[in-house]
């Protein structure tokens, strides 16, 4: 029997173009959605949920974010501050910067409080009263948006 040999000289190459197109599109997507601007978010804090917690309509003029962990520690400007006195010192420096270098009053500064849902309420109140002593007036208690209502009708 005579076997016919096929010509096997050509190298079969798959077309890579669609795969590279898709890979570039995915990279472009992830590069666009990667969120470096939201540095104020801190994953150590689990925010309380509320259906009324709406993102602010316009960005605050001078936001100042204080994080409060479940253990009662504070995170301010990326630094972990173990006590209220440390936070007071850090805030005092901040007030000096605001009053010297910015054309703003301390009353225009919004103090955003990102407290953990299991943090002690008394500590949140202490932070607020301390900020009041430093002449801050506007406060925003931050929560995460809940899809389902957290309050049931009686």
């Amino acid at each position: 029997m005579r076997l016919t040999k096929r010509h096997s000289g050509d190298i079969v190459e798959g077309d890579m173009t669609p795969m590279i197109d898709m890979a570039f599109q995915l990279i472009a997507f992830f590069m666009l959605v990667v969120n470096f601007s939201d540095a104020e978010q801190d994953q150590r804090i689990k925010l309380p949920a509320s259906e009324l917690a709406n993102p602010p309509q316009a960005p605050y003029d001078e936001p100042l974010t204080i994080h409060l962990t479940e253990r009662g520690e504070f995170i301010f400007s990326g630094n972990l501050l173990p006590s209220l006195e440390d936070l007071r010192a850090a805030l005092l420096r901040e007030t000096q910067i605001v009053s010297r270098h910015l054309d703003k009053k301390l009353g225009d500064v919004t103090v955003i409080i990102r407290a953990d849902e299991n943090a002690r309420t008394g500590i949140v109140q202490e932070v607020i009263s301390m900020c009041q002593e430093l002449k801050f007036e506007r406060f925003a208690l931050r929560g995460k948006k809940a899809e389902a209502p957290t309050i049931r009708s009686p």
Partner: peptide
């Protein structure tokens, strides 16, 4: 990132 929102309270002095 889950959306976050604020409760604004104004407590001067």
């Amino acid at each position: 990132v889950l959306p976050e929102g604020d409760f604004n309270i104004r407590m001067p002095a």
